Computed example of a mutant assay.
Amino acid sequence: MGAVREALDALALVDHHCHGVVTADLDRPAFESLITEGSRWPGSGVSPFDSPVGVAVRRHCAPLLGLERHAPPEEYLARRAELGWREVHRRLLGAAGTGVYCVDTGYAPDDVTTPAELAGERAAAYEVVRLESVAEAVAARGVEPDGYADAFRAAALEAVGRPGVVAVKSVAAYRTGFALDPDRPGDAEVGQAARRWLARGGRLDDPVLVRHLLWTAVDLGLPLQLHTGFGDSDLRLHRADPALLTDWLHRISGTIPVLLLHCWPYHRQAAYLATVFAHVYLDVGLALHYVGPARASAVLAEALEITPFRKLLYSSDAYGVAEFHLLGAVSFRQGLAALLQERVDADELCLADALRIVTWTGADNSRQVYRFSATS
């Protein structure tokens, strides 16, 4: 094992964007639904286990549950049920070696762990506030259209004032996409849009109110996480290209850090934005556990073709199953180690620089952006 791999294996990762895990035992349909961004297709003969991520689960998670590598799905799920979800979480989360979790608490269609429950005694936990959830809660409580902007701002300020909150997040990529007017909407425009939205109800997907949400995030002053690229079928992928944000990023230059999450297949566009804007950062997030350790180095190599090394962060975007917290960490460690060691061996990078990149991308870049303690 080379020095780069040793350094990565020893590093307590900072997972700057993830979610909780389900607090229940899972049957096969429930488990399969959580290891795909698509849907289960009963009767089709297609199983998420027969995919790169399903193979990676059986290869890298099975031994931690006391099984042989590549155990068949039936054996894997039977062993998982035998151990129970608490023991599965203990083993897999412990093996991930994550020292800090930044947890998006705004998405929970299942009963999942809180940030503190996810971290347990082995790690520190912080919260990321999803602003669409705040806006929808304001609407659900009842508000007059002309009072929506002030009510949303007050609710957002209250949410980010909670202990442990380090960032806000938007899922504008899902709701409208990024081909938005980059300018801040006026009060009258917001009021008219709020009247339309409140009358029809449902999710916050009005382009004017989404713009207002993004500009409110700027006013809040915390780092802003933006989902970009790969996601479930609710997404229209062509609208989630972060390059569509270029004009808006010009408008907000010098204000807040913007963290582009996941990015694949637009990780090269995200790398460009992180190269030309001081306030833009990126990760490749859930792409790593979906391609698995076997291809993680290829995705990371593309993300790092031009990205300044202080601009790439680690995240898993794991949700629901602890397997994804483990696979994200394993894929990042193995993929980055292979990439950097190859460059060291080719004398394109010295070992000292490689070891700095390990620490920066795996932990310190997140600490610098979110400003939590270096000892957490």
Rank of each mutant, 00 (worst) to 15 (best):
I252R: 04
C61R: 05
P52C: 07
K169H: 11
L304D: 03
C350L: 14
L11Y: 12
E136F: 07
G2V: 09
A303R: 02
L8G: 05
F49M: 02
P48N: 03
Y76W: 06
P308T: 09
V160D: 02
V143S: 10
L339I: 09
R295N: 15
D345G: 03
A12E: 15
A194P: 01
Y290V: 07
L259M: 14
F372A: 06
P293K: 12
S366Q: 13
V276Y: 09
V321F: 10
H262I: 10
V321H: 06
V344F: 12
P145A: 08
A7E: 07
V210K: 00
L349Y: 10
P182R: 10
E305W: 10
G43L: 02
L282F: 09
I252H: 05
R69V: 15
Y290H: 09
Q334L: 15
A188G: 05
D234F: 13
D317I: 07
D247Q: 12
R122K: 12
D9N: 02
A96H: 06
H19G: 00
V190N: 10
V128R: 04
R59D: 11
A3R: 14
E82K: 08
G191S: 11
A278R: 15
K311C: 00
Q368A: 15
L312P: 05
G106W: 01
S51I: 02
P73V: 10
G202S: 04
A81V: 12
E302K: 13
A10V: 09
Q334A: 14
L260V: 02
A24K: 07
P29G: 02
G45Q: 05
A278F: 05
P48S: 03
S51F: 05
A287G: 10
L244R: 15
W360H: 11
Q334V: 14
A10G: 04
A62L: 01
N365H: 11
T228K: 00
A173C: 06
D234G: 15
T228I: 11
T375W: 14
A139M: 08
H227M: 09
G97L: 07
L13C: 09
S39Y: 13
A108R: 15
D25P: 05
S331Q: 09
S297R: 15
V4W: 03
V358M: 03
G94W: 06
H289M: 08
A137C: 04
P109R: 04
T246Y: 13
G161P: 06
A108N: 12
E323W: 01
L26G: 03
D353M: 11
A294K: 09
